[in-house]
């Protein structure tokens, strides 16, 4: 052994506080976590594929969703009509993807409204607490105690069925769970020390809400959104199925299921494709939601 090995090391003492791990941002971290969940990845792929076909699927076929052709009614799948035709000879490939697009649009719009109302309402209720919170919670309880189907039916009788009215009708009661999630999160966060630190620095309510509370509720909001989109699609389908939804030749997945169901015994494929698509959308969003929960939930952090 060399004598030099036992000489003291000369060192720069300023470099004591150093970081060895490479920089990983919050979203990057979440993405690594999400990626490692095979089910969630599969769900995300389903949704991307479905959305791709919903918005661009019509260009793979020469037919549109509304033209009737009484010479080609109730056909099975063929090279012309990939999914066959319905009882008025409309191409089911075009109608199914158009329906999926409308269903998704309604769901996105409804959930966007949920987020807007829910975050505002829940945020204010949780942040100010006390009497404000009490009053706002009573409002939520009253809304919750009215069966939402009745509210939606009344809404749709008053408004003409269409994309926007259905989305509005869905979010009339749909924002309540979102408000509850945001309120719970804000209640939890506002007593955390970093919020106290901001308060003792003299930060305004607005600043605390926008810079400290809101960014920390994004995770739960995204998780909740990923579960409320499929439930909005399902509810829309249900409304259309009971005849409260869009009117033909407009189509949504619910409308198509309703039409297909009438000829179930003769032409089962007319029901099969829209029903399958609804199931895949539900499954995809739920799988993805689970993955997002694992990826964004701070409790999982080590």
């Amino acid at each position: 052994m060399e004598k030099e090995s036992f000489q003291p090391i000369q060192r720069n003492f300023l470099s004591y506080q150093r970081l060895e791990r490479k920089q990983v941002g919050f979203w990057q971290d979440a993405w690594y976590r999400f990626r490692s969940n095979k089910g969630a990845l599969l769900g995300a792929i389903f949704i991307i594929c479905i959305m791709f076909f919903a918005f661009f699927g019509s260009s793979f076929s020469q037919y549109d969703y509304y033209s009737q052709n009484l010479l080609e009614v109730d056909q099975g799948d063929s090279a012309q009509h990939y999914f066959g035709t319905d009882s008025l000879g409309r191409d089911l490939w075009a109608r199914t993807w158009y329906g999926a697009k409308i269903s998704l649009l309604i769901a996105f719009l409804a959930v966007a409204l949920d987020v807007l109302i829910g975050v505002t309402f829940g945020g204010i209720s949780g942040y100010f607490g006390g009497r404000v919170d009490d009053t706002m919670q009573r409002v939520i309880e009253i809304l919750y105690s009215i069966p939402n189907l009745i509210v939606i039916i009344l809404m749709l009788m008053w408004l003409e069925p269409g994309i926007i009215p259905i989305a509005v009708a869905l979010s009339i009661t749909g924002w309540v769970p979102m408000a509850r999630i945001v309120r719970a999160q804000v209640l939890k966060l506002k007593s955390q020390e970093f919020v106290l630190a901001a308060r003792s620095l003299g930060a305004s309510h607005r600043r605390i809400f926008i810079r400290h509370l809101l960014p920390n509720t994004v995770g739960p909001i995204i998780i909740s959104v990923s579960f409320s989109i499929p439930s909005a699609i399902f509810f829309e389908a249900f409304l259309s199925f009971i005849g409260l939804g869009l009117r033909p030749p407009q189509a949504s997945l619910g409308v198509l299921v309703n039409e297909g169901y009438r000829y179930l015994q003769l032409y089962p494929h007319q029901l099969l494709w829209p029903a399958l698509l609804i199931s895949l959308i539900m499954l995809g969003f739920n799988l993805m939601g689970d993955g997002l929960r694992d990826a964004l939930d701070p409790k999982m952090k080590r």
Binding site: F26, Q192, E193, F194, L196, A197, A198, S200, L201, G202, R211, H212, P215, N216, V218, P298
Partner: peptide, 23 residues
């Protein structure tokens, strides 16, 4: 009040909860 909020500061107990994780 703002002046007071500037001149009097606090150092907190929990090094994990006292910093906003998103900033």
């Amino acid at each position: 009040q703002q002046h007071f909020r500037q001149k009097v500061q606090m150092v907190f107990q929990d090094p994990y909860a006292s910093l906003n994780p998103r900033m």
